[in-house]
Design a protein around this nucleic acid. Sequence first.
DNA 1: GTTGAAATTTCTCTTTTTGTTCTCTAAACT
DNA 2: AGTTTAGAGAACAAAAAGAGAAATTTCAAC
Lengths: 209, 209
Amino acid sequence: MGEHLENILLSPRQRDAWRFIRDYIATHGHGPSLAEIADGLGIRSRGVVHRHVRALADTGLIEHLPGRHRGIRLSGEGDETGTRRAVLPLLGRIAAGAPIEAIPDQQQVDLAEFFMGPNRFVLRVQGESMIEAGILPDDMVVVERRETARDGDIVVALIDGQEATLKRLQHNPDGSVTLFPANCHMAPMIYPAERVQIQGVVVGQMRSY
Amino acid sequence: MGEHLENILLSPRQRDAWRFIRDYIATHGHGPSLAEIADGLGIRSRGVVHRHVRALADTGLIEHLPGRHRGIRLSGEGDETGTRRAVLPLLGRIAAGAPIEAIPDQQQVDLAEFFMGPNRFVLRVQGESMIEAGILPDDMVVVERRETARDGDIVVALIDGQEATLKRLQHNPDGSVTLFPANCHMAPMIYPAERVQIQGVVVGQMRSY
DNA sequence: GTTGAAATTTCTCTTTTTGTTCTCTAAACT
DNA sequence: AGTTTAGAGAACAAAAAGAGAAATTTCAAC
């Protein structure tokens, strides 16, 4: 266990950098250059990035080999005692015709990366209106709070300020909107735009058996 | 020591602030700034918020690192480094007929609790064989490695040691097993037990839009 | 090896954001 | 009366973040 990472607190920007570095290493297999981090974060100055990197190294989150090109590595953070890093190995594709043990090159799926984001929340689904979109009763949907959505998005819509439903959205040329259920036994509903208030857009879905 | 008496010690406005901070950290992964809290509570003065925050810190509900930007974190949470707690607020049930903001008393969904467990891994789904069970192509399924399963379980099955598929399992009286696709365009398949090797049971499913 | 592009480090300076400390006001409650 | 809770707003201090440039080192091609 070693180092206590207790009293550290990353600033938002440092967290951005840390996220970028993690993703970069996961994708490329080696560390990013300062310029690449800068580019990834929309920073124009490598000096700024260097400051962030050093801050991250101070916390122990990364290992920083000074002077080396791409001298950034992730430092021992995988192996805590089975606690709650929401990470599962990704073994590959099912129906691919290979025994599972045989699949090499394990990636990892980070549930946090998969689902977390600003202004997101979870709703439990009631009813079968989206069943043909693979959203079953009692599933959980991850919703990002937003007031507008694009055609085809699955949205949480509030009708007349009263009834909240999960439907697929489409704007009509005449200004009205149509809410499509994904269920052939239910009819689409057309409303004037004023009566429909978008509360969020579905960005994820999960189910536990 | 005797500080679990939160509800008694907090003034109404302090409780508002406490709730806001909790939700903010849950969704954003880092603490709010005083201005953001002020905005969230409809307060125009950061000084007022500062007073509330300090009161909350005195009760021990939050930890307040003085001077630091966004230096608020939930006490007892040593993490918040880069390993975001995979936690989202659960707002309630959709199709329940209430505006989302109105739902009180937020629970939290911990993605780790939801999906993590021993011997679990993730597979990306290929093909439409389980589409009527709400498992679509490119979904991820969480599989728990197991060699036996019960009737009705969705299993990862290896046939003749060659082809891995996702099907619903049923044992037949004669010792054979039937693998049911959840797709009316595909036929169930019956195999002698020796040809079918269970590799795991689906315990979860997730999708990202 | 030598060389030169690419990368890292170290500066200084500026801007933006945030936190802290005031004083003053007002309502609600004892 | 006095006390508690709450808010507004101003003024200042400090932290965080960025720009840009110069100096230095690494590293790979030659």
